[in-house]
Design a protein around this nucleic acid. Structure first.
Length: 163
DNA sequence: TCGAAGATTCTA
DNA sequence: AGAATCTTCGAA
């Protein structure tokens, strides 16, 4: 069984009542409730009538917060990803929050699963970068909370999202 | 109930 | 620049 794998190269932070761009800004709802739960859990939501996005819950239980995974560098299962994304361009496979969920077949059925253990969907540690080169900038695609420099990406990585 | 907006992507 | 497309949320 082939697994679909990628290295996270871009993410954005979202918090709670102090972050107007966050789904948790106005408190807990049925959609965002996992943002208030245990850290390391997947928060997957559906938006624009067609797209899924994947977050990792980040804060201790009871405190809302999550990181939106915005881009991956494909590592394994690239042919499968090309089929799912209907493109052969390797850079277009996972360089956007909704693109990577399509490439990796991530849907709301995975909402709420613990990604700190080897599961259907999980995150594992990678060797540290020999040269630290993570940079931050303003978040993308949000109307409110543009001022917050909570987007982190690997500088120079060709698989990050954006224009 | 109803209506507006949305942590996006693709096409023209 | 505009459409696609439907869920979610807050107001009525």
């Amino acid at each position: 069984m082939l697994s679909l794998e990628g290295k996270i190269v871009e993410a954005e932070a979202y918090r709670g009542s102090d972050d107007p761009a966050s789904h948790a800004y106005r408190g807990k709802t049925s959609r965002n409730q996992v943002m208030f739960g245990k850290p390391g859990v997947a928060y997957v939501y559906f938006t624009y009538g067609m797209h899924h996005c994947l977050n990792v819950v980040t804060e201790e239980e009871g405190v809302p917060g999550a990181a939106l995974i915005r881009a991956l560098e494909p590592i394994n299962g690239i042919e499968e990803m090309k089929k799912r994304r209907r493109t052969s361009d390797p850079r277009a496979l996972t360089n956007g929050p909704a693109r990577l969920t399509q490439a990796m077949a991530i849907t709301r059925s995975l909402n709420g699963i613990d990604m700190t253990m080897p599961r259907e969907l999980f995150i594992s540690a990678a060797p540290p970068n020999p040269i630290p080169r993570t940079v931050c900038s303003r978040r993308i695609g949000v109307r409110l909370g543009r001022d917050k420099p909570w987007r982190y990406q690997v500088r120079g990585n060709p698989y990050v999202s954006g224009r």
